[in-house]
Amino acid sequence: MVDITSSQLSGPQGPKPRKALSRRNILLYGTLFVVTVYYALPLYVMIVTSLKGMPEIRLGNIFSPPVEVTFEPWVKAWAQACTGLTCDGLSTGFWNSVRITIPSVILSIVIASVNGYALANWKFKGADAFFTILIFGAFIPYQVMLYPIVIMLREIGLYGSLTGLVIVHTIFGMPILTLLFRNYFTSLPEELFKAARVDGAGFWGIYFRIMVPMSLPIFTVAMILQVTGIWNDFLFGVVYTRPESYPMTVSLNNIVNSTQGVKEYNVNMAATIITGLVPLTIYFVSGKLFVRGIAAGAVKG
């Protein structure tokens, strides 16, 4: 028997001493602090500039906080800023974007989720071949397909309409969303699907009663992905709609980069912030799910 109590402890014992301000920590947190400030700076500049009056902008530097806070630039950006010919601010573009985004998001998610479910659980001959084409299609530069789609939309009389743009967003959202849903449904236990078949549920029965209720997170991810993606789109908006139905990004660009008149930097920044507000809100609210959404593109099937 060893007598534990009487043995003398000498040398290092107990918790290892740690310095809170070790060189490693100073370096680590110092670097991260500088990086964080750098990334946050543009947002800060946008906000402070949009709250200053023009005289203050001309005098001061862009990083200094506003001496006199004014919301006039915001009002002007929303309702009066000029885009070449018309002067009704961003509001038209905003509502156009809303009218484009909502149906596009719904339609693309419905189609892609049902399709992903068919690919995951009801494989038929040739399904994988089409799916492979679809995934490779995601890598084709949009420019290659821009004009053929113009012709197709013109043929069915939808060129220049919001419906046409909704279809375009649905088409180009399909590869990534289908992959997202297919991978998710594949990851669900196959035995659940089998059990439901033994229980006599069919294609739609299993989709609505079993799969959809189990997949709310992935539907949220898809929604975040699509809302930000479609809201931020510029190219399709400018190609497939007419000026009166331009989405917000296009109006914003036209306001800021219009060559007429005096440059009102505060109004420009207010307009920029307003345009970024929707995706930013979604980003800050959704947090981890947003990360999951963008990572979904990188996780291979």
């Binding site: 089998k194 439901a196 033994v198 006599g200 009663r209």
Partner: peptide
């Protein structure tokens, strides 16, 4: 079809429908 064969099946992973309660699971079929 599986449901028309007069069989019942029990799976390794239980395969219970997670969003339904026990009664719902039993009555689904």
């Amino acid at each position: 079809e599986p449901s028309e064969r007069g069989i019942g099946m029990v799976f390794q992973s239980y395969a219970l429908y997670p969003q339904m309660n026990v009664e719902g699971n039993l009555s689904f079929g």
